[in-house]
């Protein structure tokens, strides 16, 4: 069973790496979807079927599709890909690469320093998650709905096609 975890982990990391390197936007999105699916498998292995389903349905299914729609609206074309090649010179990766590496090293160091006990394991049923959500975390649920409402309104307003003469902006 552990092999599933490690294989999925490898796929997730590889496809994520491809996302950040890829020049074509839609290709990158597809890689991202693969990464998300791999993470969903990991969730299943960790005994979290509910969030695994959520990951696939919402993250990979809705959010990424939203990205694809946006790409379609933007209608970038081949010129964008060419431009990406120009923008992504190898020397651009040096500084950020070092920083990210240091960050990763710190995190790894912290994790290995501490002695971790064995995980409790076990599957956490969706029922339990629901009970927790509408039990102690019900306030968070309400707030989440408010956040979504705000995002809806914001996206509607920001996405409006304003007449070209207006200078001040939304």
């Amino acid at each position: 069973m552990n092999a599933v975890f490690y294989v999925s982990a490898l796929i997730a990391v590889a496809s994520t790496a491809m996302v950040i390197i890829e020049r074509n936007a839609v290709h990158a999105l597809l890689y991202l979807i693969v990464s998300l699916l791999a993470v969903a498998v990991i969730f299943f292995g960790l005994g979290a079927p509910f969030v695994a389903a959520l990951e696939v349905l919402i993250y990979a299914g809705a959010i990424m599709v939203l990205f694809v729609f946006a790409m379609m609206l933007l209608n970038l074309g081949r010129a964008a890909t060419e431009q990406e090649r120009q923008w992504l010179k190898p020397r651009m990766w040096r500084g950020p690469g070092i920083l990210a590496f240091i960050l990763l090293a710190e995190v790894v160091y912290v994790l290995t320093c501490v002695g971790w006990p064995a995980p409790a394991g076990g599957v956490v049923e969706p029922r339990q998650v629901g009970a927790a959500l509408f039990g102690p975390y019900v306030l968070g649920v309400e707030l989440a709905s408010l956040v979504l409402l705000a995002a809806l309104l914001g996206a509607y307003h920001l996405g409006r096609r304003t007449p070209p003469s207006e200078g001040g902006g939304p």
Binding site: I42, V107, T112, A118
Partner: peptide, 11 residues
């Protein structure tokens, strides 16, 4: 399910 050490997941 899996019995991977916790730190691997976090890593």
């Amino acid at each position: 399910m899996v019995t991977v050490p916790v730190e691997h997941g976090l890593m």
